[in-house]
């Protein structure tokens, strides 16, 4: 039986390079044995051989098909082991899984991209997709927050993104820090008094769930409709193919129907954010 027919079999993948983004976040440049085409927002199950899998959304551009970048926050068993790994070592990949972002729906609209911490990683593949075709969108506003200046991910790219025509880039950190002259406060402060055409906007957000909760509340307060808000629901996952049950939210399997969900579809789930 061919490889593709066993959905649990990991494709052997070599680490080409490890990039240190912050003290706790690293980006891994990966070369799978065979190219794995994906859409922005679709995710992979990454295997540390003999240890286990964890889900990650590629942070690289979907247009780059031979290689893939995955940006990982060190936080537990699998990610600890991953952070110890070096170029030349082997991993496994399964995927891509999920629907990916509804990019075509965003054509002609103002797109608000709201990220927190390592949540900017999955959003980066969307940002590349949007910026690559910037003429198709009315405007792209990136709002990003991290705890400290040191924890800002992809900091070296902010200037380039922000200088593009049609792009507005804003960054904040949670608490004042020596040498920081920018905005201070949770990412929701960047959502105050949005100067945008509400009717023609979509917001897309990725970050810790508490952040998603407060971003959603803030956006609703600012006048967004639930239909205009997309949230990356990055819950516990195992199979990636709608069978193991772990990722269920309401009637939806996040691994199949998400992981980016339209808030209108899940807002009635009791205790949505736990």
């Amino acid at each position: 039986m061919a490889k593709a027919q066993n959905p649990y079999y990991p494709i052997e993948t070599e680490i080409l390079e490890v990039i240190e983004e912050t003290p706790t976040i690293k980006t891994f440049l990966l070369q799978p044995q065979e190219p794995i085409p994906f859409k922005a927002g679709q995710f992979m199950e990454l295997t540390v051989p003999g240890l286990g899998e964890a889900p990650f959304t590629p942070s690289s551009s979907p247009l780059q098909t031979e290689k893939m970048e995955i940006t990982v926050l060190r936080t537990g068993t699998v990610t600890d082991a991953l952070h110890e790994m070096k170029a030349g070592q082997k991993l496994g990949l399964r995927g891509p899984f999920g629907k990916g972002y509804p990019v075509e729906k965003l054509y002609g609209k103002e797109v608000l991209v709201v990220g927190g911490g390592v949540g900017l990683a999955p959003l980066r593949s969307l940002i590349y997709t949007l910026l690559d075709d910037i003429g198709k969108f009315k405007r792209v506003s990136i709002k990003y927050g991290a705890r400290t200046p040191q924890e800002l991910c992809f900091r070296s790219e902010f200037e380039e993104w922000g200088s593009k025509k049609g792009v507005d880039m804003k960054v904040t950190i949670d608490l004042p820090a020596p040498g920081w002259t920018g905005t201070v406060g949770l990412v929701t402060v960047l959502l105050e008094k949005l100067n945008i055409d509400l009717k023609n906007s979509y917001a897309v957000s990725c970050g810790p769930e508490v952040m998603l909760k407060f971003v959603t509340l803030k956006l609703l307060e600012e006048g967004f409709e639930p239909e205009q808000i997309y949230l990356s629901m990055n819950r516990n996952m195992s199979c990636g193919v709608g069978k193991c049950g772990h990722c269920i939210v309401g009637r939806y399997f996040l691994c199949k129907d998400g992981p980016d969900m339209c808030y209108a579809d899940i807002m009635d789930v009791p205790n949505l954010f736990g």
Binding site: Y8, Y9, P10, T47, V48, P49, G50, L51, G52, E53, S238, C239, K243, C244, G245, H246
Partner: peptide, 24 residues
């Protein structure tokens, strides 16, 4: 009930992935 978990382990010179029943 069909919930499961994929578990990886090192077995000699290779790795194995096992699907085991899980409980919500």
């Amino acid at each position: 009930c069909r919930c499961f978990l994929l578990v990886d382990e090192q077995v000699g010179d290779h790795s194995e992935r096992t699907m085991v029943w899980d409980v919500c």
